[in-house]
Computed example of a mutant assay.
Amino acid sequence: MEYEFDSEIKMLEGKMKWKVVYFPYPVKEIFDTNGKVPVQITVDGHRFEHTLLPSKNGHYFVYNEFIRRAVLKKPGDKLHVILTKDEKSRNIVVPDYITRNLEDHDMLNPFLDQPDYLKREQIHYIELAKKEETKINRILALINTLKDK
Rank of each mutant, 00 (worst) to 15 (best):
D32G: 01
V27T: 07
K78P: 01
S55G: 10
K15A: 13
H46N: 12
L12D: 11
N57T: 09
M16C: 11
E13C: 08
L52D: 03
P38Q: 08
Y25G: 06
F31V: 00
D32S: 13
E49F: 12
T33S: 03
I67Y: 05
F61Y: 09
G76A: 14
D6L: 08
P75L: 11
H80A: 09
D6Q: 14
H59Y: 08
I41W: 01
G35I: 04
R68N: 12
M11I: 08
V71K: 02
V27H: 00
N34M: 10
H59N: 14
L12P: 14
Q40N: 13
Y22K: 10
V62F: 06
G14I: 06
F48R: 07
F31D: 01
V27N: 00
G35D: 05
K28V: 02
K74L: 14
E65V: 12
F61W: 06
L53C: 03
Q40Y: 06
L79T: 09
V37K: 08
I82M: 13
T84W: 02
R69I: 02
K36P: 01
K36T: 12
V21W: 09
V39R: 07
L12K: 14
K28G: 00
N34F: 08
I9V: 15
D32C: 03
S7C: 15
K36D: 08
P26V: 00
I67R: 02
K73S: 10
P38D: 12
V62H: 04
G45M: 07
K74D: 15
V62P: 02
F48W: 12
T84I: 12
